[in-house]
Design a protein around this nucleic acid. Structure first.
Lengths: 336, 336
DNA sequence: CTGTTAGCGCTTTCAA
DNA sequence: TTGAAAGCGCTAACAG
């Protein structure tokens, strides 16, 4: 299929040098005379030579490939994060391979085995909840890995991310600070995600006398947010605010409210979580929590590469999230 | 960093067999006695042996890796497409590496060189518009590649996708069929995408007496759709329908219209393009064009793998898109 | 059915 | 500053 291409020997032959010298040039090696270097580079260009990555990897035991396993890619927050990792790795000649776990521990394990078998040198996982065999595998083979999208200083591997619990708690305080006493909380499947469980814990921590909290699990998409909100609206005692653990859910809530003829935030306040690229454009603009997806990708990438290249130890990093005040949350008007 | 792991010799030693036999077992080879096979498999499990992919690739000149270069990943339609390709490749032990071109031909070329240098065996590109050097590179090295998200039987490489021109034309006919005589068309940067240009051509083809068509280029995101629509609303002669070349743009239009106090579809009809996962959930539900992203990913994946594995020739495939009638388009009420 | 052996293309001491 | 040569771990004839 793929036709034969120039090899290092061809370049050596063309320049009259040895393959060792060509190799040195290709690797930016020091001990090469500028003259020789130019000659080699010219020949490479001319022959359209590209070092064979498999041979190189075999020889160095380095594939310069890192793997990321994410629950889904069909979510802007992950897409943004992945784009950032890819960008960061590319800067230093690394590549990213990804796999989708659908939030399933077994699928994640299987994906990791496949990626390891593909030569991935390091792994980026989402959250801190993983298959025990996965951790065994990594430990046994000494595979560097980090947890992301979460911050848990005591986790088995370094976590690089934000504090979901604290952030959810802050959002709740923000809402109660605006006088809300009855808040519905919409979230995706708890079983699939420790990040979701952390957020739930944070929300629950805000619980106190006179505060009614209703938790509703739904599918993690716009349809889920919409149907859960619709259901909510049928209950006799309507919440004055809806806190969604994802902007996607909040978008669904906005649509359901609009259909029901309810105004946001006059009738019901809505708060999101993520701050996706469109979150400031909704009508009304969504008040939400900004997550440092891009910074997280960069941090994860550089830590892993520094570790792989220089042995720099990996360490947990707590990234800040922050409430983005826009127009979908208003103080509750005293009723009763 | 990564500690030494078992090699093929270790399992050969452990089983008292030769490395050739172990290799046969690992590759599902035929001529192996069931007994031997079991012994080898057991030893592999026991030693946690995983064949070294670099050695294997070097030996076979096959990396089982295909590359996809896409304009952006932060768009559900691409995310869905990528997920489908990944799924299809994984079924047969192939891996997917991706790169983002940001719709720039030079960036795409650079990414392709990098991916080739990483061992990618085949390429999936978006659209049919590429850097001439890229095509030269592929031709010279005999790298299999296909164009996707487009259908152009006469293109330089097989195109696997939908007919953007015809689809846009169909949407226009649908709109004019509903009595719309003044239609605004919102689209992303023409310079970045031949798919967008094709859609524009399709829309223009619907041009006829008594039909006013206004084209507006904007950024390809919700904010772009919103601001373009806002601008539209200021003009004296308001269009009765807005046709967006992406659902993302349509979402922005919906928000702008909502803010302006205009009802959809009573005051203005809105039509999208893509049929993203949330498109049926908007208020009102978006009438749009469904794109076969998942089928496209599967087709692209299998064609490339069949070609790589068996030499099956690559060929263009036209996938169908279809109008999804929902609630955002209504017949225009006769005015004047 | 199983073993021997010759590379795959490159990096990397070790000498010169 | 450059060259010679020994592998890296695996696959694929070829023998037996």
């Amino acid at each position: 299929m793929t036709r034969p291409v120039g090899k290092i020997r061809d370049v050596a032959k063309a320049t009259g040098l040895s393959i060792a010298t060509v190799s040195r040039v290709m690797n930016g090696g020091k001990n090469v005379s500028p003259n020789t270097r130019d000659k080699v580079l010219a020949a490479c260009k001319q022959l359209n030579y590209l070092p064979n990555p498999a041979a190189r990897a075999l020889s160095t035991s380095r594939s310069k490939t890192v793997a990321a396993i994410i629950p889904t890619i069909e979510h802007s927050i992950f897409a943004k994060y992945i784009a950032s990792i890819e960008h960061s790795l590319a800067q230093r000649g690394y590549s990213l391979v990804i796999a989708i776990s659908h939030g399933d521990l077994d699928e994640e394990l299987a994906a990791a085995q496949k990626l390891l078998g593909m030569g991935a040198e390091a792994f980026i996982l989402s959250g801190a909840d993983h298959h025990p065999d996965l951790l065994d595998l990594f430990t046994q083979r000494g595979v560097p890995h980090v947890y992301s999208s979460i911050w848990q200083p005591a986790s088995a591997a370094p976590s690089i991310g934000y504090d979901n619990t604290a952030l959810a708690r802050a959002a709740m305080d923000y809402l109660t600070g605006h006088g809300h006493h009855h808040i519905a909380v919409l979230h995706g499947p708890l079983a699939d995600s420790d990040r979701t469980r952390d957020r739930q814990a944070g929300a629950k921590a805000a619980q106190r006398d006179g505060l009614t909290l209703d938790f509703h699990e739904t599918s993690l998409d716009v349809a889920g947010g919409k149907s859960a909100t619709r259901a909510l609206l049928h209950s006799a005692d309507r919440p004055s605010a809806i806190f969604c653990f994802s902007d996607v859910l909040a978008l669904g809530a906005l649509f359901a409210l609009s259909e029901a003829g309810l105004r946001v935030p006059e009738d019901v306040s809505v708060m999101g979580f993520d701050n996706l690229d469109w979150s400031g454009e909704t009508a009304p603009a969504l008040t939400t929590i900004n997550l440092p997806a891009t910074r997280m990708g960069a941090e994860v990438g550089t830590q892993l590469m520094d570790h792989l290249d220089n042995g720099t130890p990996l360490g947990p990093v707590r990234l800040d999230g922050a409430i983005v005040e826009r127009a979908s949350v208003a103080p509750v008007t005293r009723r009763g």
